[in-house]
Every structure is written in C-alpha cells, then in structure tokens.
C-alpha cells in the first residue's frame, strides 16, 4: 500500500499556489504600466495627482472578482471529482478569499509606496483626487485595511456568483444583484465607484469608519452565508463536451 498522510488543507495550498504568483506577476505589470502613465501625464500635463490611486481604486477589484469565479469554476469541480466534500471546499475557499485579498491589498499598498518614492525624486506631491477612508497617500495601515476589505468583498462576490452559475443559469442570474449589494461599500471606502450612473458621489456620503467597517463585515458574513446556501447541496453536472 502506498497510503500517505494527506497534507492539511490541500485545496487551499493548491489555490494559493495558483493565485498568489499570478497576482504577483500582474502586480508587477500593473505597477510598471501605472508609473509609465504617471510619467507621460506628468511630462505632458504637468504634475499629476496620484495615478496609482486612480488605477488601484478601479482595476484590482475586477481581478479579485475573477479569482473568486475561478475558485468555483476550476477548483470546486476538481475538489468533488477527487472525493472531497463541498463543506471542505467551502471552508478552504473562504479562507482563500481572505488570504488572497490580503496579499493583493499588501501589493496595492506597496504601489502607493513605490509611487511616493518616484514622486519624491521628481519632486511631485502625491495627492489624492478623491478620498475614501484614507485621506492622504501615506496613511499606509488605513490604505491596506481599506483595500483588504474592498478586495475581500469583491472576491467573495465572485465566489457567490460563480456558485450561482455552477448551480444553474437561473441561480447565476439571481446572484448577480446579490453580488452587487455585497460590493457596494467598496464604492464608498475607496471613493471610486467605477460604475456608470452611480458615479463617485457615494464617496461624499458622510459615514464613519466604524460604520463602514461594520457594514462591510456584515456584508461579508451575508455573502458567505448565501454562498454556503448555494454550495451546500449543489449537484455536479457532467461537463458539457
């Protein structure tokens, strides 16, 4: 017999091994592109506001949303095909959303640091054209916390919608508005909705940090609860060929 003792949390290990390097590579690309844009804008239009802030409040959340979808599309099927349970998958997937969004938030925060260094060399002020929970580009703990919260909600929304569609097209469509509700606070906290029609006005709604934090955590719990309801008994249909 070749029975070996399985490592703990195998799915989490595999998901982290797949997503963290991917996020890191995209971060390098993102940083380079954003700094080039900053340079171009700076040369043509004079000193810009923080370009990192403009980009980071819009782009990374979509990536994390996509990773949330991927967790379901790629790993749930494999998990079940290899004799693991939905419960096991879900526990590890939720842990993964916390870890991967934290990792991404750390990298985004690093972007602000890199930009600050570059602007300092050029003698540009690193100003924010919009503010959310943080009001200056050097409030690093708040920046990190804000992004972690935002990206976590977007990842979990991806998981929720992914599970909806794993179950059926009908459930999938149903989860889209739910996903939107889950990510709403993120529009407030970073001061950039990135959405048509809604605009950035939400940013000026005067909410205290504690309120935003409380609402966000509540929404996270809600999303996890909904996702669990979705995955608990989800049938795995044969793959369409």
């Amino acid at each position: 017999m070749t029975t070996r003792i399985a490592k703990r949390w195998p799915t989490l290990r595999v998901m982290l091994a797949a997503h963290l390097p991917f996020v890191a590579v995209l971060w390098v690309l993102f940083t380079v592109v954003v700094l080039i844009i900053a340079g171009v804008v700076g040369v043509t239009n004079g000193m810009p506001d923080s370009v990192v802030h403009d980009a980071a409040t819009q782009v990374p959340r979509w990536l994390l949303f996509g990773l949330g979808l991927d967790l379901v599309n790629t790993y749930l099927r494999l998990q079940l095909a290899h004799g693991r349970t939905r419960r096991e998958f879900f526990g590890q997937a939720v842990t993964h959303t916390v870890l991967v969004s934290g990792f991404a938030a750390l990298l985004v925060t690093l972007c602000y640091l890199v930009e600050r260094a570059l602007y300092a060399i050029l003698d540009w002020p690193q100003t924010l054209d919009r503010t959310g929970l943080f009001t200056a580009a050097d409030q690093y703990p708040v920046i990190f916390g804000t992004y972690w919260l935002t990206l976590l909600l977007w990842t979990v929304a991806g998981v929720l919608i992914g599970l909806g569609f794993f179950r059926s097209a009908g459930h999938g469509l149903l989860t889209i508005p739910l996903g939107l509700v889950v990510v709403l606070p993120s529009l407030v906290v970073v001061g950039n909705s990135g959405m048509p029609f809604i605009g950035d006005d939400l940013a000026v709604v005067g909410l205290s940090n504690a309120t935003v934090l409380g609402v966000s955590c509540g929404l996270f719990v809600l999303a996890v609860g909904l996702a669990w309801a979705m995955v608990r008994h989800v049938p795995m249909k044969p793959q369409a060929v």
Partner: peptide, 25 residues
C-alpha cells in the same frame, strides 16, 4: 464521467495530475 470531471480545461495535464496527487491520499 465521460471524458472526466477531473479534466478541467485551462489547466495542463501535468497540473491536473499534480492536483490529484495533492487531493488523493
């Protein structure tokens, strides 16, 4: 089932086999 639930597209054959090794004691 059929051509295999473990044959998820987007991953290489090698990666899928590694995944199986992780998940199957």
């Amino acid at each position: 089932r059929g051509t295999g639930d473990a044959a998820v597209s987007g991953l290489k054959v090698k990666e899928l086999l590694e995944f199986a090794e992780h998940l199957r004691p």
